[in-house]
Design a protein around this nucleic acid. Structure first.
Lengths: 156, 156
DNA sequence: CTCAACCTTCCCACAATGGGAAGGTCAACG
DNA sequence: CGTTGACCTTCCCATTGTGGGAAGGTTGAG
């Protein structure tokens, strides 16, 4: 199976498949005479695994750990669970942080009449850090969830 | 005031201050004879503004818009409010997505005994996308919130 | 005078991903 | 058989924000 087909089957872009191979997340793919990468069904399963764990917000490094644990079936499930739980905690912290931010922004917008008048409490609020900002400092937590393409929405 | 002092006063690293200047977010700083950048109180206010909006998860591009609106006081508050609200919606979507992910992960971990035994429902679950995954696809939403330095926590 | 602590500009790295160029291959159609 | 389009290959570059660090200039205190 060519990389294109593997990509379609797994939902991982060809570019990413090559990249995962390059960084050692995947073993070098089998090659055919024409040097095309050749994928088997088992590879697809692997790719889908990666795809899914990525969707769940695990970093590639974490995906690597999970893959190692997966390959090495003899290993205990303890580690897997620990990894998953650590990730859940990460996410929960980030959700909490974001909610705080949303609350702050809501307070700011609430007092802004949003019309033609020029005075805007949002800007004042942004300029003068009131107590409303409970140290939402980047709090280390991260794992590249939603590294999506910049939303070119309406306000582009 | 040297860049170091300005950094300390504003909470923005010297490196970032230079970067913001480089990308045109800030006007080129005044220079002294020795070519050192020289900052005044008003600059500090500006830097704090940036710092705060960054903390609230606005992208640098968005910060740029807010700064423009701030500088141009004659402008209506409508735009500011719109920007803030768009950002709130962004955040809310992301919170929703993350909650879905947390729920999924919770379900997976719940069935994992997490002991020495080798079978781990988490891994099975990750391999076989059950219905539990309600299209949490990267859903465009993003603005580089928490682009923190990779958390080198316990599991480093 | 010397040394530490500043400052300057450059370049490099990171996470993950996409874009695209320059070139090789293959299959189908005429 | 030849051409064409759809593949594939490897490379390099851009992105977003941030930090690290080198190589060099300045300055102020001891």
């Amino acid at each position: 199976m060519n990389i294109g087909a593997a990509s379609e089957r797994s939902g991982v872009s060809a570019k990413m498949i090559r990249y995962y191979e390059e960084i050692g997340l995947l073993a070098p793919a089998a090659r055919r005479d024409n040097s095309y990468r050749d994928y088997a069904e088992t590879d697809i399963v692997l790719l889908q695994f990666i795809r899914r764990t990525r969707d769940l917000g695990f970093s590639l490094e974490e995906v690597g750990s999970l893959l190692a644990l997966w390959r090495d079936r003899k290993r205990s499930s303890r580690e897997v669970k620990r990894l998953a739980q650590a990730h859940i905690e990460d996410l929960e912290q980030r959700i909490k942080d974001m909610r705080t931010v949303v609350r702050t922004l809501r307070e700011l917008t609430q007092n802004c009449h949003g019309d033609e008048r020029s005075d805007c409490p949002i800007l004042e609020g942004l300029a003068a850090p009131r107590k409303t900002t409970p140290r939402t400092r980047p709090s280390r937590t991260r794992s590249a969830l939603y590294g999506a393409e910049h939303s070119e929405r309406d306000r582009s």
